[in-house]
Amino acid sequence: MGKVLVLNASYEPLNITNWRRAVVLLIKGKAEQVEHNGKYVYSEFPLPTVIRLRHYVRVPYKEIPLTRRNILHRDGHSCQYCGYTGDELTLDHVVPRSRHGGDTWENIVTACVRCNVKKGSRTPKEANMILRNQPRRPYSSLHFEVAKHVKGGLHQEWRKYVIGI
């Protein structure tokens, strides 16, 4: 049936849950429905796609893990030097490890094998290669997850609740 975006009382995105949990929150009166997709759980009860909690919930900051999968997603599964999109993508250190470049969000990009070999152990400037997008740390783990759903063609109604998508 689908996923549901949960908003805090202040309309900021809080998490993504399954439709059953969302329906339970609605029935218990802990949340209100903001958006639905036209499908129904039963007559007169539309299936929610966005709900808002009635009371504000404080949430601690959650770090996004630096993984190959997350870097590929951040970079749109394309080489950050030539734009190649395919199966043969690698990870490249902007400042090479041999020059004490670390494993950080700001120093690793997706690159095709050809560009990675061409760049070698040089910086992009030394190799005369220009980065298409400057690497940066994603905003938040939730922003990252919501972006995956929206950019994947699902849940376009979530777009208006998240900045920067």
Rank of each mutant, 00 (worst) to 15 (best):
V41S: 05
T90Q: 07
H149F: 05
L142E: 09
S140G: 10
R136M: 08
P46K: 08
V146Q: 06
E106L: 01
P124Q: 09
I130C: 15
H93N: 09
G38I: 09
N37Y: 12
T90D: 11
R74D: 00
L47R: 15
W158I: 05
R52I: 04
E126I: 06
S78F: 04
L53D: 09
K39G: 11
Y61Q: 12
Y61I: 13
L154E: 13
V41Q: 06
H55E: 14
T85L: 13
I108K: 03
H149V: 06
Q80A: 02
K125T: 12
H77C: 08
W105K: 01
I51H: 05
R74H: 01
S98Q: 03
G102Y: 08
G76D: 03
P48R: 07
H73W: 11
H143R: 13
S140R: 07
S43W: 15
E126V: 07
M129P: 00
G38P: 11
L154Q: 12
N107W: 08
L131F: 01
Y40S: 10
I51V: 11
L53H: 05
Y139A: 11
I108H: 02
L72D: 05
P60D: 11
V50H: 12
R159I: 07
V109I: 06
R99A: 05
Y81K: 01
H93I: 03
H100Q: 14
S121N: 10
G101R: 02
P48L: 10
R74C: 00
V50K: 09
S98W: 00
G83H: 07
G83S: 03
N37T: 11
G86N: 07
I64F: 04
R52T: 04
V113R: 13
K39W: 13
R99K: 10
E145K: 13
L53E: 09
Y40A: 10
S141Y: 14
M129N: 00
D103N: 10
N128K: 12
N37F: 12
K119Q: 00
L66G: 02
K118A: 02
S78K: 08
K148A: 10
W105N: 00
R114N: 08
G120V: 03
G153Y: 04
H77S: 09
G152R: 11
V59A: 13
H143M: 10
V94Q: 02
E88Y: 11
P60W: 08
R99T: 06
V146N: 08
L131K: 01
I130L: 14
Y40W: 09
A147H: 04
F144L: 14
T85N: 15
L154M: 13
I130M: 15
Q134W: 06
V146L: 10
R97F: 05
P135C: 01
R97P: 05
K39N: 13
L89K: 00
P65N: 12
N37R: 14
V59S: 15
L142Y: 04
P96N: 02
R74G: 00
V41L: 07
E88M: 10
N116Q: 03
A147W: 01
Y61K: 12
I108S: 01
A111D: 02
V150Q: 07
K148N: 12
E63G: 12
G101H: 07
Y56M: 14
A111E: 00
K148Y: 10
E157G: 04
Y84N: 03
Y42W: 14
